[in-house]
Design a binder for these strands. Structure first.
Length: 697
RNA sequence: GCGCCCGUAGCUCAGCUGGAUAGAGCGACGGCCUCCGGAGCCGUAGGCCACAGGUUCGAAUCCUGUCGGGCGCACCA
């Protein structure tokens, strides 16, 4: 709850510049938070920018500006520093009272409402429905779900979609496993599914199928045939496929629900095919000349899309064209001639600029289907799915699914968004760029601009962890990590990890709380496990490859989710104690706060304790500013680090200052108000990360 | 070869649209429970921010190049 103040300061300073210096177009400038409270609460470095045009020293400009500013509501004083900064000190008591007294806080909240925003779709998770979810999938879901929460915090209407590739090779592989390796009938598979951890079973089977193919390459024919049957809805295969997909998708949903992750809509790829979305999109693409039939060379008989140079990633800045430095030939220096294929080099080069959309056998590729899907999301396809209720989720939230059969009444208006975030790891950047290109080619530059590939690096395993999982050391491997591979069955399953964390956490809870029942320990342990794993997934910036180490992830100390949860629990305990000991509620404690002497907040200057009450309150207020940054940069590590820093600040404060045991009533009251505020803000920050806080732990 | 990402403390990583002294966790070493819970707090040691240029009042941050690493560039998704 600091953004409003920042905006106000910005506007007042801009106005003062215009008045004082007769500048018509004020340069863009920032209102920032100085490194320590001794330098004020907000700082404006605009004098540096003005120095050149005004031909004056920054210091002189800052001083004039400070004088011309007049009073700003909520700002106690403005100081021009010797080097040219404008430092602003807030009216501390009013600031805290505004945020902690319910009536006033409600008014602040209205700041956030800035009219109806355009609808946004976030697509995340999208795990192939043929095996259990692993930690790579978890990073996707954790990032996606946090994005959703952050957008909702900014009051942006969000629709969460989970794309289900029910007609792809991966599902086909498991079908092959059941039919060809295990030789099971559908009924036998059903029985198996009812009597085992089916997603785990398929995990192993999928790895076995991979080996089976390697045993005899001719078996790949079976895979191709199975895939064809799956796409065309041919009887035994498609029926088994539908069963497997349904069971695995439900397993994934259950796993994600443990992590407080839910969805609004499951989009089944099969429905895109059956409802002829692709056929329709294909007509559009052909009519506009976005795809053409290649009549020669390697790709003869394929419908291809030409890849343009500027089809770079969507999430990043739209740059103005860089000047080409004239196409002189780059000398291939020395001996770098490949041992083989020298004659196909140029052909390969030309063909590399074309992407196959429809194979020569007439089967559409993933890209084609995804283009159709993206068009539908923007409401550009002129067609819609039918929908049915798929499941009930936590908090009464209904999960819908697409269908090509009879639809169910009461479905919300899905799709038709003006902005789309596709959460997919960076390896698919190339394909995501194609989506933007297709939109641009068809005359939808704005939609292309709003097709955002939320890209992040993959999760790999540390050698230690791979060894612990029983995977043999790859001696030829020199990389510092081991890549997760569903195909090889190499990875840490989400549920296994959660179980491990929950068990460890429950043990700790039991040790620390001898009076807790086993049930309580289990519940609290679950919450801690979620905190640990979700925080772990968010603390790295998205461009960082996570080398997952099980021992590191199992830690509950230092920069971890449980540390954050513990900070809130401590704050809770204070008010709990207040009630038990003095019979006072939080509201009663804060009664008459604005009339109490605010000496506690007055401590100022360079010698002030950097962990004092004001430092804590001010930091807690920055949440909205942080979320703003997070949504702009899609960098959730910023949120994670902020929350951690706030918890650290609170813990330090907690150790240094008594709250309930403070003798002076006014100090006690202000401290309690600060703690109440920090608890509220920290809880919100945790909620944005999908982390709940147990009452005790 | 082309494209994207990364290179910051012993290890793992933050550092947001350039701003005031480069941070955290872990590990190491040393302290702190008559007082709201020690999943905690305090302190010490540890950095040519890969390298070289450039832009700027100001660069870990922006630009160019070099070196080193990762990932993409399929009639897979």
């Amino acid at each position: 709850m600091i953004l409003g103040v920042q905006r106000l300061v910005h506007d007042r300073v801009a106005a003062a510049i215009q008045r004082q210096f007769a500048v018509t177009d004020v340069p863009a400038f920032t209102v920032e938070v100085p490194p320590g409270r001794a330098l004020g609460d907000l700082a404006v470095p605009v004098a540096f920018q003005l120095a050149r045009t005004l031909r004056k020293a920054p210091r002189a400009i800052a001083q004039e500006l400070a004088g011309a500013l007049g009073t700003i509501p909520g700002v106690a004083r403005v100081v021009a520093t010797p080097n040219g900064y404008l430092n602003l000190y807030l009216d501390r008591p009013a600031f805290l009272v505004d945020r902690v007294v319910p009536a006033r806080a409600a008014r602040l909240g209205e700041d956030l409402d800035r009219g109806p925003s355009a609808k946004t779709i976030v697509e995340h998770t999208a795990i192939n429905p043929n095996k259990a979810a692993h930690i790579g999938h978890l990073r996707n879901a954790a990032l996606g779900d946090t994005l959703v929460r952050a957008l909702q915090y900014r009051r942006i209407p969000v629709e969460v979609q989970n794309y289900i590739d029910d007609t792809g090779v991966q599902v086909a592989d498991v079908i092959v496993g059941f039919l060809e390796i295990e030789r099971l009938s559908i009924d036998e598979v059903r029985r198996l599914a009812d009597s085992t951890r089916f997603d785990y079973y398929c995990w192993d089977l999928y790895a076995r199928v991979t080996e089976w193919y390697e045993g005899d390459k001719a078996r790949l024919e079976i895979r191709a045939a199975t895939l064809r049957d799956l796409e065309h809805g041919a009887r035994p295969v498609s029926e088994l496929g539908a069963f497997i997909v349904d069971r695995i998708v439900r397993a994934h949903l259950k796993t994600m629900a443990r992590l407080n992750i839910g969805y609004d809509l499951l989009t089944f790829e099969g429905d895109i095919l059956r409802l002829k979305f692709w056929a329709h999109a294909f007509d559009i693409l052909k009519a506009q000349g976005a795809v053409f039939l290649q009549t020669e060379g390697r790709l003869e008989g394929c419908w291809v899309m030409r890849i343009e140079d500027e089809a770079d990633g969507g999430a990043d800045a739209a740059e103005d064209e860089s000047i080409e430095p004239s196409g002189e030939s780059i000398e291939p220096k020395g001996e770098s001639i490949e041992p083989k294929g020298e004659s196909i080099e140029p052909v390969k080069d030309a063909a590399a600029r074309e992407k196959v959309i429809v194979r020569s056998n007439g089967v559409v590729t993933y890209v084609g289907k995804d283009i159709a899907n993206q068009f539908w999301k923007f409401g550009l396809l002129g067609r819609d799915f039918r929908y049915h209720r798929f499941a009930d989720q936590a908090g009464g939230r209904t999960l819908w699914a697409t269908t090509s059969l009879e639809g169910e009444a009461g479905a919300p208006p899905f799709g038709r968004a003006s902005r789309i975030y596709n959460v997919i790891d960076s390896r698919q950047m190339y394909l995501q760029a194609l989506l933007g290109q297709a939109l641009r080619t068809l005359g939808h530059p704005r939609e292309a601009e709003n097709s955002i590939h939320f890209s992040y690096e993959m999760v790999a395993l540390s050698h230690d962890t791979a060894r612990q999982l029983g995977y043999p050391e790859d001696t030829g491997e020199r990389k510092p990590f081991v890549e997760v591979s569903g195909r090889k069955g190499l990875g840490v399953k989400v549920d296994d990890l959660l179980d491990l964390l929950a068990e460890k956490a429950a043990g700790e809870v039991a040790r620390r709380n001898p009076t807790f029942s086993a049930e309580e320990c289990r519940k609290v342990g679950d919450a801690i496990a979620v905190g640990a794993i979700r925080y772990f997934m968010l603390k790295f910036s998205r461009g960082t490859l996570i080398v997952f180490d099980i021992d590191e992830a199992l830690s509950f100390e230092g920069e971890t989710g449980p540390y954050l949860q513990y900070a809130v629990v401590r704050a809770n305990n204070i008010f709990q104690k207040l009630k038990e000991r003095d019979g006072l509620t939080e509201a009663a404690m804060l009664e008459g706060l604005e009339r109490a002497s605010a000496e506690e907040l007055a401590d100022e200057g360079a010698e002030a304790d950097p962990h004092n009450l004001w430092a804590l309150v001010f930091e807690a207020s920055r949440l909205d500013d942080v979320v703003d940054q997070v949504v702009r940069s899609l960098e959730f590590s910023v949120l994670a680090k902020y929350a951690f820093g706030l918890a650290q600040l609170f813990n330090a404060f907690y150790h240094r200052y008594s709250i309930l045991n403070e003798e002076r009533a006014d100090r006690r009251q202000w401290r309690a108000a600060g703690v109440a505020y920090v608890r509220q803000q920290l809880s919100r920050a945790l909620d944005l990360m999908g982390i709940g806080v147990p009452a005790r732990m």
